[in-house]
Protein backbone atom coordinates (compact mmCIF):
# COMPACT_ATOMS: atom_id res chain seq x y z
CA UNK A 1 0.00 0.00 0.00
CA UNK A 2 2.67 2.44 1.05
CA UNK A 3 4.49 1.78 -2.21
CA UNK A 4 1.48 3.07 -4.10
CA UNK A 5 0.52 5.77 -1.68
CA UNK A 6 3.97 7.32 -1.35
CA UNK A 7 4.37 8.34 -4.99
CA UNK A 8 0.88 9.83 -4.91
CA UNK A 9 1.70 11.77 -1.78
CA UNK A 10 4.89 13.07 -3.36
CA UNK A 11 2.95 13.86 -6.48
CA UNK A 12 0.33 15.64 -4.41
CA UNK A 13 2.97 17.71 -2.67
CA UNK A 14 4.62 18.60 -5.99
CA UNK A 15 1.32 19.61 -7.56
CA UNK A 16 0.34 21.37 -4.37
CA UNK A 17 3.60 23.33 -4.31
CA UNK A 18 2.93 24.42 -7.87
CA UNK A 19 -0.55 25.58 -6.97
CA UNK A 20 0.82 27.28 -3.88
CA UNK A 21 3.58 29.15 -5.65
CA UNK A 22 1.28 30.32 -8.42
CA UNK A 23 -1.34 31.25 -5.86
CA UNK A 24 1.17 33.22 -3.79
CA UNK A 25 2.11 35.21 -6.88
CA UNK A 26 -1.55 35.87 -7.62
CA UNK A 27 -2.18 36.74 -4.00
CA UNK A 28 0.69 39.22 -3.74
CA UNK A 29 -0.59 41.09 -6.75
CA UNK A 30 -4.20 40.90 -5.65
CA UNK A 31 -3.53 42.05 -2.11
CA UNK A 32 -1.49 45.08 -2.92
CA UNK A 33 -3.15 46.34 -6.06
CA UNK A 34 -6.49 44.59 -6.31
CA UNK A 35 -5.55 43.14 -9.67
CA UNK A 36 -6.73 39.65 -10.54
CA UNK A 37 -3.96 38.79 -12.91
CA UNK A 38 -5.48 36.57 -15.59
CA UNK A 39 -2.22 36.84 -17.51
CA UNK A 40 -0.42 35.01 -14.72
CA UNK A 41 -0.64 31.76 -16.69
CA UNK A 42 0.81 33.52 -19.72
CA UNK A 43 3.86 34.54 -17.72
CA UNK A 44 4.34 30.90 -16.74
CA UNK A 45 4.12 29.77 -20.34
CA UNK A 46 6.37 32.59 -21.51
CA UNK A 47 9.03 31.57 -19.01
CA UNK A 48 8.79 27.99 -20.23
CA UNK A 49 9.28 29.01 -23.85
CA UNK A 50 12.14 31.35 -23.01
CA UNK A 51 13.85 28.54 -21.09
CA UNK A 52 13.26 26.27 -24.06
CA UNK A 53 14.80 28.87 -26.37
CA UNK A 54 17.84 29.24 -24.13
CA UNK A 55 18.31 25.48 -23.89
CA UNK A 56 17.98 24.96 -27.61
CA UNK A 57 20.81 27.46 -28.02
CA UNK A 58 23.00 25.30 -25.84
CA UNK A 59 22.27 26.69 -22.38
CA UNK A 60 21.99 24.22 -19.53
CA UNK A 61 18.73 23.70 -17.67
CA UNK A 62 19.89 25.77 -14.72
CA UNK A 63 21.11 28.62 -16.88
CA UNK A 64 17.78 28.52 -18.68
CA UNK A 65 15.94 28.52 -15.38
CA UNK A 66 17.73 31.61 -14.15
CA UNK A 67 17.83 33.43 -17.47
CA UNK A 68 14.23 32.79 -18.46
CA UNK A 69 12.91 33.65 -15.01
CA UNK A 70 14.72 36.98 -15.05
CA UNK A 71 13.70 37.79 -18.60
CA UNK A 72 10.10 37.00 -17.78
CA UNK A 73 10.34 39.26 -14.78
CA UNK A 74 11.59 42.06 -17.00
CA UNK A 75 8.61 41.52 -19.29
CA UNK A 76 6.41 41.54 -16.21
CA UNK A 77 7.81 44.86 -15.06
CA UNK A 78 7.26 46.30 -18.52
CA UNK A 79 3.67 45.11 -18.58
CA UNK A 80 3.05 46.52 -15.13
CA UNK A 81 4.58 49.90 -15.94
CA UNK A 82 3.02 50.24 -19.37
CA UNK A 83 -0.46 48.89 -18.78
CA UNK A 84 -1.52 47.75 -15.36
CA UNK A 85 -0.12 50.74 -13.47
CA UNK A 86 -2.48 53.02 -15.36
CA UNK A 87 -5.43 51.20 -13.87
CA UNK A 88 -4.62 51.17 -10.16
CA UNK A 89 -6.92 54.07 -9.53
CA UNK A 90 -9.81 52.43 -11.26
CA UNK A 91 -12.00 49.61 -10.06
CA UNK A 92 -10.31 46.20 -10.28
CA UNK A 93 -12.59 45.12 -13.14
CA UNK A 94 -10.42 46.98 -15.59
CA UNK A 95 -7.15 45.37 -14.63
CA UNK A 96 -8.94 42.02 -14.72
CA UNK A 97 -10.10 42.67 -18.27
CA UNK A 98 -6.77 44.11 -19.29
CA UNK A 99 -4.91 41.01 -18.18
CA UNK A 100 -7.59 38.89 -19.86
CA UNK A 101 -6.87 40.69 -23.13
CA UNK A 102 -3.14 40.32 -22.61
CA UNK A 103 -3.51 36.59 -22.02
CA UNK A 104 -5.40 36.22 -25.32
CA UNK A 105 -2.64 38.09 -27.11
CA UNK A 106 0.06 36.07 -25.37
CA UNK A 107 -1.50 32.68 -26.09
CA UNK A 108 -1.86 33.37 -29.79
CA UNK A 109 1.61 34.89 -29.99
CA UNK A 110 3.12 31.76 -28.46
CA UNK A 111 1.33 29.78 -31.14
CA UNK A 112 2.64 31.95 -33.91
CA UNK A 113 6.20 31.92 -32.60
CA UNK A 114 6.66 28.41 -31.24
CA UNK A 115 3.89 26.51 -33.00
CA UNK A 116 0.55 25.16 -31.81
CA UNK A 117 1.75 21.77 -30.64
CA UNK A 118 3.98 21.10 -27.69
CA UNK A 119 7.70 21.67 -28.10
CA UNK A 120 10.19 19.04 -26.97
CA UNK A 121 11.16 20.58 -23.65
CA UNK A 122 13.74 18.14 -22.31
CA UNK A 123 14.74 17.95 -18.70
CA UNK A 124 18.46 17.15 -18.25
CA UNK A 125 19.15 13.44 -18.13
CA UNK A 126 20.50 13.51 -14.60
CA UNK A 127 17.12 14.82 -13.44
CA UNK A 128 15.21 12.11 -15.25
CA UNK A 129 14.86 8.61 -13.90
CA UNK A 130 13.91 7.59 -10.42
CA UNK A 131 15.36 7.75 -6.97
CA UNK A 132 14.80 4.94 -4.50
CA UNK A 133 14.13 5.75 -0.87
CA UNK A 134 14.03 2.36 0.79
CA UNK A 135 11.52 0.38 -1.21
CA UNK A 136 9.72 3.50 -2.34
CA UNK A 137 10.71 4.60 -5.83
CA UNK A 138 10.13 8.25 -6.67
CA UNK A 139 10.73 10.21 -9.87
CA UNK A 140 13.85 12.34 -9.44
CA UNK A 141 12.51 15.39 -11.26
CA UNK A 142 9.59 15.61 -8.90
CA UNK A 143 11.87 15.46 -5.89
CA UNK A 144 13.96 18.22 -7.44
CA UNK A 145 10.88 20.33 -8.02
CA UNK A 146 9.75 19.74 -4.47
CA UNK A 147 13.13 20.87 -3.15
CA UNK A 148 13.29 23.86 -5.45
CA UNK A 149 9.83 25.09 -4.59
CA UNK A 150 10.50 24.75 -0.87
CA UNK A 151 13.63 26.88 -1.35
CA UNK A 152 11.68 29.47 -3.35
CA UNK A 153 8.94 29.74 -0.74
CA UNK A 154 11.48 30.01 2.07
CA UNK A 155 13.35 32.69 0.17
CA UNK A 156 10.14 34.60 -0.35
CA UNK A 157 9.26 34.44 3.34
CA UNK A 158 12.74 35.63 4.26
CA UNK A 159 12.40 38.46 1.76
CA UNK A 160 9.07 39.56 3.15
CA UNK A 161 9.96 39.21 6.82
CA UNK A 162 13.69 39.85 6.99
CA UNK A 163 14.33 42.68 4.54
CA UNK A 164 13.38 46.36 4.63
CA UNK A 165 11.76 46.08 1.24
CA UNK A 166 9.68 43.16 2.46
CA UNK A 167 8.67 45.13 5.48
CA UNK A 168 7.56 48.03 3.29
CA UNK A 169 5.59 45.70 1.07
CA UNK A 170 3.73 44.28 4.02
CA UNK A 171 3.17 47.74 5.31
CA UNK A 172 1.80 48.92 2.00
CA UNK A 173 -0.70 46.11 1.96
CA UNK A 174 -1.92 47.15 5.40
CA UNK A 175 -2.07 50.86 4.69
CA UNK A 176 -0.62 52.27 1.49
CA UNK A 177 -1.47 55.87 2.34
CA UNK A 178 0.42 55.65 5.59
CA UNK A 179 3.40 54.16 3.78
CA UNK A 180 3.34 56.96 1.27
CA UNK A 181 3.04 59.54 4.03
CA UNK A 182 6.05 58.03 5.74
CA UNK A 183 8.09 58.69 2.63
CA UNK A 184 7.98 55.39 0.80
CA UNK A 185 7.54 55.52 -2.93
CA UNK A 186 4.55 53.18 -3.13
CA UNK A 187 4.64 53.34 -6.89
CA UNK A 188 7.97 51.50 -6.87
CA UNK A 189 6.62 49.10 -4.30
CA UNK A 190 3.78 48.11 -6.63
CA UNK A 191 6.25 47.37 -9.39
CA UNK A 192 8.54 45.36 -7.14
CA UNK A 193 5.56 43.45 -5.85
CA UNK A 194 4.33 42.65 -9.34
CA UNK A 195 7.83 41.59 -10.34
CA UNK A 196 8.05 39.20 -7.42
CA UNK A 197 4.68 37.68 -8.36
CA UNK A 198 5.78 37.23 -11.96
CA UNK A 199 9.11 35.77 -10.88
CA UNK A 200 7.29 33.12 -8.86
CA UNK A 201 5.08 32.36 -11.84
CA UNK A 202 8.12 32.12 -14.09
CA UNK A 203 9.96 29.66 -11.86
CA UNK A 204 6.83 27.54 -11.55
CA UNK A 205 6.31 27.74 -15.29
CA UNK A 206 9.77 26.49 -16.16
CA UNK A 207 9.54 23.54 -13.80
CA UNK A 208 6.03 22.81 -15.00
CA UNK A 209 7.17 22.79 -18.63
CA UNK A 210 9.37 19.79 -17.85
CA UNK A 211 6.54 18.10 -16.01
CA UNK A 212 3.42 18.88 -18.03
CA UNK A 213 4.87 19.45 -21.48
CA UNK A 214 5.17 22.89 -22.97
CA UNK A 215 2.46 24.25 -25.25
CA UNK A 216 0.65 27.58 -25.52
CA UNK A 217 -2.03 26.80 -22.94
CA UNK A 218 0.23 25.22 -20.32
CA UNK A 219 0.10 28.08 -17.85
CA UNK A 220 -3.64 28.49 -18.03
CA UNK A 221 -4.12 24.88 -16.98
CA UNK A 222 -2.44 25.73 -13.67
CA UNK A 223 -4.21 29.05 -13.29
CA UNK A 224 -7.61 27.70 -12.32
CA UNK A 225 -6.34 25.47 -9.49
CA UNK A 226 -4.36 28.46 -8.28
CA UNK A 227 -7.53 30.55 -8.09
CA UNK A 228 -9.21 27.80 -6.12
CA UNK A 229 -6.15 27.73 -3.88
CA UNK A 230 -6.56 31.41 -3.14
CA UNK A 231 -10.24 30.92 -2.38
CA UNK A 232 -9.63 27.95 -0.11
CA UNK A 233 -6.60 29.43 1.61
CA UNK A 234 -8.32 32.74 2.11
CA UNK A 235 -7.60 35.91 0.23
CA UNK A 236 -4.78 37.93 1.62
CA UNK A 237 -3.11 35.08 3.41
CA UNK A 238 0.27 33.83 2.30
CA UNK A 239 0.16 30.87 4.65
CA UNK A 240 -3.35 30.21 3.36
CA UNK A 241 -2.00 29.89 -0.18
CA UNK A 242 0.65 27.42 0.92
CA UNK A 243 -1.71 25.32 3.01
CA UNK A 244 -4.47 25.59 0.41
CA UNK A 245 -2.15 24.53 -2.38
CA UNK A 246 -0.86 21.50 -0.52
CA UNK A 247 -4.35 20.57 0.59
CA UNK A 248 -5.64 20.63 -2.98
CA UNK A 249 -2.60 18.83 -4.35
CA UNK A 250 -2.85 16.03 -1.81
CA UNK A 251 -6.61 15.71 -2.03
CA UNK A 252 -6.51 15.52 -5.81
CA UNK A 253 -3.74 12.95 -6.01
CA UNK A 254 -5.10 10.73 -3.27
CA UNK A 255 -8.52 10.86 -4.89
CA UNK A 256 -6.82 9.86 -8.13
CA UNK A 257 -5.65 6.72 -6.41
CA UNK A 258 -8.96 5.67 -4.92
CA UNK A 259 -11.63 7.33 -7.03
CA UNK A 260 -10.09 8.58 -10.28
CA UNK A 261 -13.43 9.67 -11.71
CA UNK A 262 -13.80 12.27 -8.97
CA UNK A 263 -10.29 13.67 -9.10
CA UNK A 264 -11.11 16.74 -11.17
CA UNK A 265 -14.24 17.72 -9.36
CA UNK A 266 -12.89 17.07 -5.86
CA UNK A 267 -11.06 20.39 -5.87
CA UNK A 268 -14.34 22.22 -6.34
CA UNK A 269 -16.09 20.12 -3.72
CA UNK A 270 -13.30 20.99 -1.33
CA UNK A 271 -13.78 24.65 -2.14
CA UNK A 272 -17.53 24.50 -1.55
CA UNK A 273 -17.07 22.72 1.77
CA UNK A 274 -14.44 25.16 2.98
CA UNK A 275 -16.61 28.11 2.00
CA UNK A 276 -19.60 26.68 3.82
CA UNK A 277 -17.60 26.22 7.00
CA UNK A 278 -15.37 29.29 6.70
CA UNK A 279 -16.76 31.80 4.21
CA UNK A 280 -13.47 33.71 4.11
CA UNK A 281 -11.38 30.65 3.40
CA UNK A 282 -9.15 28.79 5.82
CA UNK A 283 -6.86 31.66 6.76
CA UNK A 284 -8.98 34.52 5.56
CA UNK A 285 -9.34 36.11 8.98
CA UNK A 286 -5.81 35.73 10.09
CA UNK A 287 -5.00 39.00 8.45
CA UNK A 288 -3.01 39.85 5.42
CA UNK A 289 0.28 38.06 4.97
CA UNK A 290 -0.41 36.25 8.19
Amino acid sequence: MIERLAPEVVNGIVLGSFYAIVAIGLSLIMNLTGTINLAHGSFMTLAGYLAFAIMSRGGSFWVALGGAALLTMVVGVAVERLFIARLYKRIPLYSLLLTFGLSLIAEESFRLIWGPSSVPFAVPTNLQGSTALGNIVLPTYRLVIMGALVIVITALLLFLYRTRLGLRLRGAVQDPDMMAALGTNTRVLYTVNFAVGVLLAAIAGIFAAGLLGLQPTMGNSLLMPAFITVVIGGMGSLIGSIVGGLLIGLTVSITTLYLPAASEIVMYVLMAVVLLVRPRGLFGEAGIFG
Partner: peptide
Protein backbone atom coordinates in the same frame (compact mmCIF):
# COMPACT_ATOMS: atom_id res chain seq x y z
CA UNK B 1 -9.24 5.22 -15.99
CA UNK B 2 -7.04 8.28 -15.66
CA UNK B 3 -8.36 11.79 -15.26
CA UNK B 4 -7.57 14.34 -17.93
CA UNK B 5 -4.40 16.20 -17.06
CA UNK B 6 -2.79 13.28 -15.23
CA UNK B 7 0.87 14.15 -14.92
CA UNK B 8 2.10 11.25 -12.88
CA UNK B 9 1.53 7.78 -14.20
CA UNK B 10 4.02 6.08 -11.89
CA UNK B 11 1.33 4.59 -9.67
CA UNK B 12 -0.45 3.15 -12.71
CA UNK B 13 2.78 1.87 -14.21
CA UNK B 14 3.64 0.03 -11.00
Amino acid sequence: LTPLGTTDFSAYLT
